[in-house]
Design a protein around this nucleic acid. Structure first.
Lengths: 345, 345
DNA sequence: TTGAAAGCGGTACCAT
DNA sequence: ATGGTACCGCTTTCAA
């Protein structure tokens, strides 16, 4: 029976520092080396079953937890994968992709670190990342990662620096996420349907330019090629701006809108309806990302479907690059896009 | 002109290891101590301007980046905040909240680490987290964090272990995110509107039980109290299951559904319409989270509005706890919920 | 004003 | 089969 007075809980917990391998060694009556061998199941060395057991028991009793920083300091490398940014609320599609990616990286025994870089320049950010000595860095293109930044990272031990995005950065591998293709798809579809005056929604939410700019650029490319009128339509994700945009679309006589993605498309379609504009009669509306949301609209939303590579695939690609940094990732394409016609165009 | 042959780029980058403070010291012709003093602007010691300059220049020239692990090993503590899980695609509301929180923590100079814990038990997870010696751990309640897990974390240097969720864990501070209140709100509203046979949508997406279970429980609580019939309605976020659920709702004669959140509500409402069920005439539908999406529905969706504490507020709370682990966080309430009636009830 | 040196917690080589 | 020990990179007394 424990009849001694309750020890002060917080003190017990706070004051007693974390046990080290030396503590375990002392309790088990062996050396720190032996502790390390046992706890890591080092093959190259034979430890008697009796000793192993004593060490394990001691570690258990003390609640020993190895110190990751000490280990990686000694090892000279980490298993850390840095995902910069990702602090903008991405759509469900990318949200899911990112979740999947993290999950897959964990499975491959990497530690995923999200490192936000507010108001840092590209090179400051790269420096900050490099302090953590990550073994791989995945940049989604937001902060201007320069060739210099990439070299800093590589010098600090990053065996893979991968940018997902449209523009390559010298020294980094590029996984091509061709956002422009989405804009091209959408516009090709609309032109094919006979539309000649087309608006392109540009979300005003900060952080989305990475996606919206190339989508617009792709759209413009096709428009220019086909001699079709195109007009950017800035739009914040709120009802009021949406009615304004809807009114504007009517005023300048658009006959179609590519609405960045299905969410903005749903918003705009609602506003158009409320303005008495017929969809697709007066104005066709096209989304992108092929979200469930789009299928829920009436009329059902035409969209650009994206076949994204799975997070698992990307994770294993990163893993390959880490294991052999000269490995050729090929011109891995992150996604393919194609138009899906439903009722809104 | 650079007419020397191109040096082999990869070799140059890969082979030359990251410079250490010793390299900087050597180049500047000073000791490692001095380098540390200069680069950290140590107040307690005065270094001549000339030396400072030499050191800075040397560091710059070598592209020196301090080694975070070495530093924190020496310092005995990190600035790492662990956010376990977060690998389920949360709704836009929590997504935004999480993004905000990370952003705010960064601003307070913490490093945010997302640590996924697939298939680990609560204590295994706690051990894995503890290896990183985080200064704070925020658990959203997913993996069973036990009293023992909390002690492991605290022993390993965590100065704040915070769970956001309904159930307290011994030793951890609890920030009350009363999901059950959402269910209560919704049901109180529906009962008030005269509904007596109420379905409650339970999303089938894995990882959402943390939210859905207490929402259901809160709903049930009110139902029992008011003598109202209540029926859980499992629902996967797809069109087909939605029609099934809609049909079922009609068959068992429900006159209202609390649909977990606005997204599921929109899905279900569409299915009900397609089945020829009038909303709110035949069946009232209530969402939650007060997303823009809900206002886009016709009829406009009644919902439970959540006033979430800002990520910034939570971050500063964590910061307080870290600086003074005995500080009283009070019974900080993470959110308050109230019903918003629109047209669907 | 600066330098020498002792660690922080592990790992791995070399002895024993 | 084990133990001693030299590092990994950085900070911080203590001396000079």
């Amino acid at each position: 029976m424990n009849r001694t007075p309750e020890p002060p809980m917080r003190a017990r917990v706070t004051e007693r520092a974390a046990p080290t391998s030396a503590d375990v060694a002392r309790l088990a009556g062996v050396s720190r080396a032996t502790v390390s061998y046992v706890l890591n199941d080092t093959e190259a060395v034979r430890i008697s079953e009796a000793t192993r057991h004593r060490v394990r028991a001691a570690a258990e009793e003390l609640g020993y937890v190895p110190h990751a920083a000490a280990r990686s300091l000694r090892a000279g490398s980490t298993r850390m994968v840095l995902l910069p940014g990702a602090h903008i609320p991405l759509g469900p599609l990318y949200g899911r992709f990112l979740a999947e990616l993290q999950w897959a990286l964990r499975r491959l025994d990497y530690t995923v670190v999200q490192y936000g870089t507010i108001g840092m320049s590209g090179d400051e950010a790269a420096r900050a990342w490099a302090e953590l000595r990550p073994v791989a860095v995945l940049s989604f293109g937001e902060p201007g990662l320069t060739a210099h930044g990439v070299e800093i990272l590589k010098r600090s031990g990053a065996r893979a620096v991968v940018t997902l995005g449209p523009e390559p950065v010298e020294g980094a591998r590029l996984l091509h996420a061709d956002q422009a293709a989405i804009g091209r798809c959408a516009l090709e579809h609309l032109v094919e349907r006979g539309r000649r005056r087309i608006g392109v929604v540009v979300p005003q939410e900060p952080g989305l330019e990475v996606f919206s700019a190339p989508r617009l650029a792709g759209a413009r490319e096709v428009a220019d090629r086909s001699g079709v009128f195109i007009e950017p339509l800035p739009l914040a994700y709120e009802e009021e701006p949406a009615s304004l945009a809807a009114r504007r679309a009517r005023e300048i006589g658009l006959d179609a809108v590519f609405a960045y993605n299905d969410e903005y498309a749903a918003l705009l379609m609602r506003a158009l309806c409320d303005e008495g504009v017929g969809v697709p009669g007066d104005i066709a509306v096209m989304g992108a990302d092929d979200l469930l949301l789009g299928r829920l609209q009436r009329p059902r939303l035409s969209t650009v479907h994206l076949d994204l590579v799975t997070g698992e695939a990307l994770a294993s690609l990163v893993d390959t690059a880490v294991r052999d940094s000269s490995a050729d990732l090929g011109s891995t394409t992150l996604m393919t896009a194609y138009a899906v016609r439903r009722a809104s165009t």
